[in-house]
């Protein structure tokens, strides 16, 4: 097309102008500067997040001589699983030298019933708050939610007294109760928001059909709420497994959960520091929540988003 041609409104020039110039799909550069910046920054951040995990794994597979010589980022020259065995079965806390396995089983014994009890209570609470409000129910709920922000330290001692009165202080049952209490605000909120989001007409239809409180809960609501139960289970399992403060306050050394025992092993002032054993022990303690996290994937994200953003 002649570039000197002016804006003559002739049919030919109009069509030719339509045909010339950019057309079709815009060519995309894979290595555009924008992409380099975006992926570069993300990659850098990913490195920062991954490095500690990498160092943990590498350290736990080295022998102590190699650790003393080399740098923490270098891969092991000679892979050894001895630190793992030692961490699991031989590491000492105080006078006990039977490793982390004791803490692991304690944590299992604490986590499973705590998750079940707390979810059972919270789901019924959420259901009552969503569908069967009574005078004052919102007031109690508000206290509960505000209570979630009260520092635990404020409530610990009164709970110690209550548990002592009930004869549960120092037992696993006491700790299960404590976990159920402190898990209640977020869990109740989670379930309440979920049940509120279900169509209200379903609940009305069930009432017209003559179903009562428990019948609607078990026969209508529960079958529809599997996702939220899974989300809640993920949150509670990781949360309770990772707890340290309640474990240290409410149990005795022989019932200490894994986190407490781990801290005692690593930060023990006696003996030579065995960093490889420490890292193996740390990885072992982190393994359960990590496995839960990697298996659950998006559900975990959904859980924290549901618990936080809607709250």
């Amino acid at each position: 097309m002649d570039k000197t041609l002016t804006m003559a409104p002739s049919v030919t020039s109009a069509t030719s102008r339509l045909e010339a110039g950019p057309q079709g799909k815009r060519p995309r550069k894979v290595l555009s500067s924008r992409n380099i910046i975006v992926y570069g920054l993300l990659g850098l951040a990913a490195l920062y997040y991954l490095l500690p995990l990498y160092v943990m794994v590498v350290t736990s597979l080295k022998g102590m001589p190699e650790i003393r010589l080399g740098n923490i980022f270098s891969p092991p020259m000679e892979i050894t699983f001895e630190p793992w065995v030692k961490a699991w079965a031989e590491a000492c806390t105080g006078l006990n030298c039977d490793g982390l396995s004791r803490g692991f089983w304690n944590s299992v014994r604490i986590t499973i019933p705590s998750v079940i009890v707390s979810i059972a209570i919270a789901s019924v609470n959420g259901y009552a708050l969503a569908n069967w409000r009574f005078k004052g129910s919102e007031v109690f709920f508000t206290i509960l939610i505000v209570g979630a922000f009260i520092p635990y330290q404020v409530m610990i001692y009164p709970i110690v007294i209550v548990l002592r009165e009930m004869g549960l202080y120092g037992t696993i049952y006491g700790l299960i109760l404590v976990h159920s209490i402190f898990g209640m605000p977020i869990q109740t909120l989670l379930f309440r928001n979920y049940f509120v989001s279900l169509p209200e007409e379903l609940f009305k239809a069930a009432r017209i059909d003559g179903a009562g409180f428990w019948q609607i809960y078990f026969r209508i609501m529960l079958p529809m709420s599997l996702p939220i139960f899974v989300v809640s289970m993920i949150l509670q399992t990781t949360g309770i497994w990772n707890d340290f403060l309640f474990g240290v306050v409410f149990t005795r050394p022989d019932t200490y959960p894994m986190t407490v025992q781990l801290n005692n092993i690593v930060n023990s002032v006696q003996g030579v520091k065995e960093y490889n054993v420490n890292m193996a022990a740390t990885l072992l303690t982190g393994a359960v929540p990590l496995i839960v996290y990697f298996i659950s994937g998006r559900l975990f994200v959904r859980g924290i988003a549901a618990g936080a953003v809607k709250g």
Partner: peptide, 11 residues
């Protein structure tokens, strides 16, 4: 980015 959040403060 999120996996550390699954770990305890102790770890």
């Amino acid at each position: 980015f999120l996996y550390p959040f699954a770990l305890s403060f102790i770890v």
